[in-house]
Write a protein that binds this DNA or RNA. Structure first.
Lengths: 321, 321
DNA sequence: CCGCGTCATGTAATCGGTTTCATGTGACGT
DNA sequence: ACGTCACATGAAACCGATTACATGACGCGG
């Protein structure tokens, strides 16, 4: 048995003759290695857990794709867990048992709305936060430059002459919402515009359906904004759909901007002006940071990935100026 | 140790006093169960592997979501593996080691283009095919009724008076392509139309980009079709985008249909007429079939899930009639 | 010819639980 | 008072690999 083990995991240290004998025996008997036994002995699992708020959201699947790519090259597998699928049980009960060294060698958290205490317990494996971050959790973060993205959006719209701009944000409490809002306000200020009042901010939930519903609200506003900046593309696409269905023209009557540059942003009509995030790269960086931690290095970096403006057909000059 | 094990996994058989003592000791020492050890002894892994052609494709993430839901309720975790991420190495080398009972308790294959020999080896865990199937692999299948979907599409378009219809299919060799084509042809025949010649069929790759490129081709056709049926929504949306960018109006100048009813189908402009597949339900059924197999039942069913027509704005009466 | 180092391989301990089996305790019926 | 039985718990085997250690064969220098 010991020789077989050596022949499989470190062929160099067995003689050529026995290596071939082992190989032949394996082929003959149909032997397969038991990875559970190996993992028990070697005190590692061979897999990394990703905690995703919503698996059905294409935004995350591209990040997962990047993570998966890096993990694969290190012979690690990817476990995926949907944090919203938790029914009414406390998250601790459901997720708790998975946040253990014996369940995964590392964890990548893509959800910003979780309880930091979940990760503070003994036996929790190395941790990296990606995309969003959790208030009160100090684990390394890999984030897009959301502040800069918000600023670029404000800049783009003000350059086009827009002055009354509705900001359709993400949910309250999300780190994404806070930073994008911050950048957006900064951008307005840089353009010399006064800070907008609360009637020009709406809190959304990142779904296209919500964006569509906002269209009606927008049409009823007394002093209708000439542009809308949405905190993600889904909401922007839903909004455009609602506006067009109501007979408005985008961008002639109203400009719409998104954030993320999901694939569909390029293929809806008109094409959606948005802020590009490199999701696959973000996933790769997160996986790399995690691997470094798993090797024992203490990583404290907070990586920020650049974003840029992608101009398409959904934004145009303000009609009033 | 034995008592602790009992207190944790089967509290009913220990006395109340010791149960509490164990609980207190756990809280005090920060003990966490080693799942690898448990799995080794119990000869199971506690996880199911999903083989996905492309993680970045939203189509699959919703199926995964359904799978994940069912697995979670049975205390199983979901491993996800992207089959395309395999570089130039033979799939056997990369995927082989994962298709073992010691790596996962079951496998759900969402990819129709894999080598059936991969799964024929000794030690391969229970298997279910979902969404697509592999030629020569007899494992149970959970599929949408693709033939009926194709038929419904043909029916809808012919009802609107269209007679020259381009069929933009999926890749050659995919089971999806074959069945949708079959249904489509059957639908045309039922409407009393002659079998279309090859100039009215194009082979695509399920990407929006490809759909967009088809727009140019379409405009150059001598006897331009009045409608296009695409084998998935991504291609249809890309095509619409291309047509609209070229100055055509959908559906006035040309009708476009998709297949799948992805979320974006409802939010693009015009809304996309398509065939609805219940992806989450498909994932759930697949997971349930796998669970049954894992319990030792021999499942040979090939489950077919119904589809239906969703009419939106992208299809309209044929202008010529 | 002997001693020592090197290399390949066999032996046994180990990882950390689960589970079978044996033991001990107390309740209960006769 | 004694036998029986149920029940809770401790002891030890077990899952299947890895790996430290021991052994044996062989080669080479003194």
């Amino acid at each position: 048995m010991a020789t077989v083990s050596r022949a499989i995991s470190n062929p160099a240290i067995v003689s050529e003759a026995t290596r071939q004998a082992v190989e032949a025996a394996i082929a003959e008997t149909g032997y397969t290695l038991n990875f559970t036994a190996r993992n028990l002995r070697q005190q590692q699992v061979g897999g990394v857990l990703a905690l995703v708020p919503n698996l059905a959201n294409p935004f995350f699947s591209q990040i997962l794709s990047g993570i998966s790519e890096v993990l694969r090259s290190h012979h690690l597998s990817l476990l995926v867990m949907d944090t919203t699928a938790v029914p009414d049980q406390p998250a601790m009960t459901v997720l708790g048992p998975y946040l253990t060294r014996s369940r995964s060698d590392g964890v990548i958290v893509l959800d910003g709305q979780m309880d930091p205490h979940l990760f503070a317990r003994a036996g929790c494996p190395p941790l990296v936060q990606a995309c969003e971050w959790i208030e009160g959790l100090s684990a390394p973060r890999v984030l897009a430059d959301n502040v800069e993205g918000g600023r670029l959006a404000a800049r783009h719209l003000t350059d086009l002459g827009h002055r009354r701009i509705l900001h359709l944000t993400g949910p309250e409490g999300s780190s994404l919402t806070t930073s994008r809002r911050e950048g957006f306000l900064r951008g307005l200020a840089q353009a010399g515009l006064p800070a907008p009042d609360d009637s020009h901010r709406m809190t959304g939930d990142f779904t296209a359906r919500f964006g569509q519903q906002v269209a009606a609200h927008l049409l009823a506003m007394p002093d209708r904004p000439s542009a809308v900046f949405c905190d993600n593309d889904e909401m922007a696409i839903g909004l455009m759909h609602g506006l067009i269905a109501a007979g408005l023209s985008v961008p002639r009557d109203i400009s719409v901007m998104g954030f993320d540059n999901i694939e569909m942003a390029a293929y809806c009509s008109p094409g959606l002006t948005t802020i590009r995030q490199h999701r696959a790269r973000l996933g790769r960086r997160a996986a790399e940071l995690l691997l470094a931690q798993m090797k024992g290095q203490t990583v404290t970096d907070h990586v920020t990935l650049g974003v840029d403006l992608v101009v398409r057909g959904s934004t145009g000059p303000c009609a009033e100026t």
